[in-house]
Write a protein that binds this DNA or RNA. Structure first.
Lengths: 187, 187
DNA sequence: TAAAATAACGAACACTTTGTTCGCTATCGA
DNA sequence: TCGATAGCGAACAAAGTGTTCGTTATTTTA
């Protein structure tokens, strides 16, 4: 890709990221992004159709690799192996979040964290669904599969939000232990 | 209150509600609300400062009594009494939602349901916190109180969203049974 | 290295939305 | 009845959106 494009794209992402860390997504204007990124109006619209389009692209950029590695992890170890938790998908994901790659934490601690978490939610849902179905577990006839999948991914997202908003006081391992404790009984 | 004010307020709420049922909150303009409510621009701004202000007021209007009755219910029966589920706070809340008071369902099935659910979340959190603390339960030293409270209210909200978006296929009692099944083990 | 392709730029644009002000009219309550 | 108040419409500046156009700078490729 053209070096100019790369730079522009990076500048816009950086500007948008900075803004997201300090104010709500809905209150950010394209104009602000343009000013912060120091690019021309025309240039912005050459790269992204709308602000929403930019958000999607940013999610891909920031979290795409996390989701990917999450899938690998689930493939290798299963959702929750019978052994200890540290290698669980959830712990893995939390660690990634904490690692603060590319200023993720700044974004997530802002008011717009819900938006980002929705991105994970969808990926998680798919992941859990396939894992839970493939698992040779006693089918709980009381509770529908769908309900369970949603419960797990939903709980995880809510936990992550709680964690992030509270300043990430716990370690990923700690958190994973708690999560395991509340989820395993129903698995 | 002046009869004129009441009518105007009601018209705006109705218009806004109708719009929310069919399109996303963020894509609704004040102009549309004004047109749908058939009131003057000046009048709208005399009643509400912003669109967000209107949203808050609508939440109060629609869900205030539900929250109130929820608190009463929790006070009488406890969060989850030792007896059967039907009189649980959660079931009570679900029933209220389903009852479709004032077109609630229409609003909730729209794209903006998350916004409304956040309103419940906050009320629920308070409620659960006070109930869970006051309860004479064996304090689970593994899992922090805060984590637990967030897990329960978070799970509930996610469940409600899943339910609503899926077209409310299950009865409140059914849903409450599932919820009880996944929550009781950790209580 | 020269030439063609392409990215970025700024200015200008028509358009929408917002939130406010004004003077006027209709309605309410005391 | 009459003063107070709510609503009205027109007009307004300000800010934002998304597009077009001609120009300049950079990169690719021939």
């Amino acid at each position: 890709m053209d070096r100019r494009q790369q730079k522009t794209r990076a500048a816009i992402f950086a500007a948008f990221g900075g803004l997201l860390a300090e104010k709500n997504y809905s209150k950010i204007t394209v104009q602000e992004i343009i000013d912060a990124a120091n690019v021309g109006r025309t240039t912005f619209y050459a790269h992204f159709e709308t602000k929403e389009d930019l958000l999607k692209a940013l999610c891909e950029e920031l979290f795409g690799h996390i989701v990917k590695s999450m899938e690998d992890c689930a493939h290798t170890h299963g959702l929750y192996s019978d052994r200890s938790a540290p290698e669980s998908v959830f712990c893995h994901l939390l660690q990634h979040l904490q690692q603060n790659d590319k200023n993720v934490t700044g974004l997530l601690s802002g008011e717009s964290s819900e938006i980002f978490m929705r991105f994970f939610r969808d990926s998680l849902n798919e992941l859990i669904r396939s894992r839970i179905v493939s698992r040779d577990r006693k089918t709980n006839e009381e509770i529908p599969q769908d309900f369970l999948v949603n419960h797990i991914s939903g709980s995880f997202v809510e936990m992550a939000l709680w964690w992030i908003k509270g300043g990430m006081k716990q370690t990923p391992e700690e958190l994973d232990r708690y999560f395991c404790a509340v989820i395993k009984p129903v698995l």
